[in-house]
């Protein structure tokens, strides 16, 4: 793909939308960030600008490239303005009705050959595509948080995704310098499919007296070459997010390994969500997650 000839839309200017827009703008794509909420849109654009400013400050990006990346980005709350976009990446709230409705509204707006990507974590790509008149162009592209720093994107076709749409999507991801892995449209794709039961089993082990959280967090990475223990990771992910993802996967799979253990509910009820609230499994003075 020739990046300058393409305009990318990122729909939803939250955590993931802002992260993905950072990636596409940095790769040289004109990028339009869309959100229904004016405040969230402005905050999202601020996040992208903040990322580039910080990269320039840290010497990771030269000032001209930083300026160019910021200029590549614009924002809108008018869906009709996404007409010229050739790749549209959906990253709105994780709600099937919202996503299908949004894809339906795009029917009359998007260009003939535009690709429709969804960043859903737990919903079915096929289900989301059912909202579109063009399900053959809908592809699952699941980025990791924080999108500007994580190289992995999981690529999953829906039942009706066309071969050309899959191939163009793979090329597009390569143009973003992402590493794509190809998987199936199954709940949790690869990473969440294995991470959720793993984290749940660590929580159950803690509750069953297999070891203290400190012992498990020290022993597991030291034996298996993981960057951090399961409870440190949960504190970063957030217990509310773990609860949501686990519950959604359980609802689809009915496999008890995915069901969040009672300790998760207790921690969420108590507001002990992890780093972002200053307390999860551990206590934190600094609630910032990834830099400023």
């Amino acid at each position: 793909m020739n990046n300058e000839n393409h305009t990318v839309a990122v729909l939803g200017a939250g955590t993931m939308g802002a992260g993905i827009a950072t990636v596409t703008a940095r790769a040289g794509y004109r990028t339009i960030l869309f959100d229904i909420d004016e405040h969230n849109l402005r905050r999202g654009i601020g996040t992208v600008h903040g990322f580039f400013d910080k990269s320039v400050r840290l010497g990771k990006l030269d000032a001209d490239d930083g300026r160019a990346a910021k200029e590549a980005l614009s924002g809108t709350t008018e869906l009709a303005e996404l007409g010229p976009c050739t790749v549209l990446i959906e990253a709105v709230v994780e709600d099937l009705a919202v996503k299908t409705e949004l894809f339906g509204r795009l029917d009359g707006i998007i260009a003939e050959s535009a690709l429709l990507h969804t960043n859903t974590s737990t919903l079915s790509v096929t289900g989301i595509a059912s909202g579109s008149r063009y399900p053959e162009r809908v592809v699952g592209t699941h980025y990791c948080n924080p999108a500007p720093l994580m190289k992995l994107v999981e690529l999953a076709d829906g039942r009706h995704t066309a071969g050309w749409a899959h191939r163009s999507t793979a090329e597009f991801l390569a143009s973003l310098a992402k590493t794509a892995v190809v998987t199936e449209d199954r709940p949790g794709f690869i990473v969440n499919r294995f991470l959720i039961p793993w984290e749940n089993s660590c929580i159950r082990a803690l509750e069953s007296g297999l070891g203290s959280k400190e012992a498990i967090d020290a022993a597991v990475p030291g034996a298996l070459g993981q960057p951090m223990g399961p409870f440190r990771l949960l504190d970063i992910v957030g217990m509310d997010i773990h609860q949501q993802v686990a519950t959604r996967l359980y609802e689809q799979l009915r496999d008890p390994r995915f069901f969040p253990p009672p300790m998760v509910d207790r921690m969420v009820s108590a507001g002990d969500l992890g780093r972002k609230t200053g307390r999860g499994f551990y206590e934190y003075d600094d609630t910032r997650l990834f830099g400023s």
């Binding site: 990791c144 994580m150 190289k151 992995l152 999981e154 590493t179 892995v181 190809v182 998987t183 199936e184 199954r186 794709f189 690869i190 990473v191 499919r193 294995f194 991470l195 039961p197 298996l224 070459g225 993981q226 960057p227 390994r257």
Partner: peptide, 27 residues
């Protein structure tokens, strides 16, 4: 669980490993 999902053709062995290495930072 990974062996079973691999047998169910979730992805190639290379892609399963790559996803866990890049997505979760496992060595």
């Amino acid at each position: 669980d990974v062996v079973q999902a691999y047998d169910e053709e979730l992805a190639t062995a290379a892609d399963i490993d790559l996803a866990i290495e890049l997505g979760l930072g496992h060595k």
